[in-house]
Write a protein that binds this DNA or RNA. Structure first.
Lengths: 229, 229
DNA sequence: CTTGGTTATAGTGTCGACATTATAGCCGCA
DNA sequence: TGCGGCTATAATGTCGACACTATAACCAAG
């Protein structure tokens, strides 16, 4: 899962950081059900840590938009809604479009080679109908382009905050999610534009790609609405 | 300062929240010098609170990107750099462009009236050469459009996180910052496009506007580089 | 005088306990 | 029986103290 290397905290040193990563994974993978209220004493006991450390970890989760807190009431895991998913797609369209434009300007030759390799992996997995891991390939693709923008703040905004939500939703839609062939073609066009250093075109293509992805997700949601688990 | 009403925590109930707002203001207005390391015991004593509450407040400041923390080392106020300022402009171009597009689709008639009023205020202040408060008018303008997008996550991302940084930099550039007339014309065009419900044009104009603002800031920086205060 | 190691000190991370607030259950009353 | 207020309980907010880490000052050897 190369896309995880984009995150900081690869090797957490403090208890609160370890807890944060543990809880984040548990939330993203549905181990802790969405919308559930967090009981600080309960969770602290379950993980064998103090409430102070737990609160610090919850604070970080709040920054990642994975939990919401209200004063004197407590924290609860975020729920999901079609509305929120559409909001995320709108933000991705704008920011990743810009990222693609910047990547076309700033990506190094080595990074372009890496991008091409991701495409090859993608193609190989399509040939073998490995639709499960396709998600990782897709995330790797988008992460690489974001990294290529060289805009540190943009990278943090997307890789560290927004993409947690993307993974959160993607995990729930995983079952029927297979737009691989079409997505691969679109990825291919984007990379070509970046290789030509055509930032304008790269941005346009990326925005189209994300909009297509959104439309597909919407269709899925109409057939199979999200359930609270 | 109507633009502050866009923030949550209007009336903080908990000590940590009050501290957070206090510290945020102090940082934005340069009361605490940029780049300064934070001593938890010192600050806690200065504000008469416990270190625990202070740490919670610092955590929130970290989410706003106003301080950075390293494990076992501590937190320090962010510094500023031309590079970072350019990064922020790139993000604003993408996200506020999208916000303008969405605002053209979703803004209500009342919100459009409010926008027009802001333009009138802007014009009045130009006539009186009140360049100081022009910044507030400008922030109000951008805040209103962001709010008009009706994308809750986008609103939070911009109003709650990114715009703290905008204010942080704007405070340091305040002295020579007067692009009022030009900015007013651009604002006018944007509002017209939104009134026509022309999202495509609104996005284009907003992106041009922010790019022009960036270019102006760059010129200022060449003449008068940022000093660490 | 410089450099490497050692010790002292200040600071951060962690914890358990107390104060305050929200919530749920219960009782009394209409 | 239904509703309003009260009480008890549990949870969150806050605090002070201890443990561990990084830094700075100091000393000794070259």
């Amino acid at each position: 899962m190369a896309f995880l290397t984009a995150c900081k905290l690869q090797d957490p040193v403090t208890i609160a950081d370890k807890l944060f990563l543990d809880l984040r994974r548990a939330i993203l993978e549905g181990e802790i059900p969405a919308g559930k209220k967090i009981s600080e004493p309960e969770l602290a006991a379950a993980y064998g840590v103090s409430r102070g450390s737990l609160r610090e970890a919850i604070g970080k989760l709040e920054n990642c938009n994975l939990v919401t807190r209200k004063p004197n009431i407590g924290a609860r895991i975020i729920g999901f809604s079609t509305e929120q998913l559409l909001e995320i797609y709108q933000i991705r369209e704008a920011t990743e479009g810009m990222a693609a434009r910047l990547a076309a300007e700033h990506m190094t030759a080595e990074e372009l080679v890496h991008l091409r390799k991701i495409l090859e992996r993608h193609q190989a997995e399509i040939a073998q109908h490995q639709r499960y891991s396709q998600h990782d390939v897709d995330l790797d693709f988008h992460f690489s382009i974001i990294q290529g923008s060289k805009n540190k703040r943009l990278i943090r905004m997307l890789c560290q905050d927004l993409y947690d939500l993307v993974r959160f939703y993607r995990f729930r839609l995983k079952s029927g999610f297979s737009r691989s062939e079409q997505a691969f073609q679109e990825h291919n066009l984007i990379v070509s534009a970046i290789e030509r250093r055509d930032g304008e075109m790269a941005e346009t293509l990326m925005r189209h790609h994300i909009r297509a992805s959104r439309d597909y997700a919407c269709k899925l949601l109409e057939q199979m609405p999200l359930s609270d688990t």
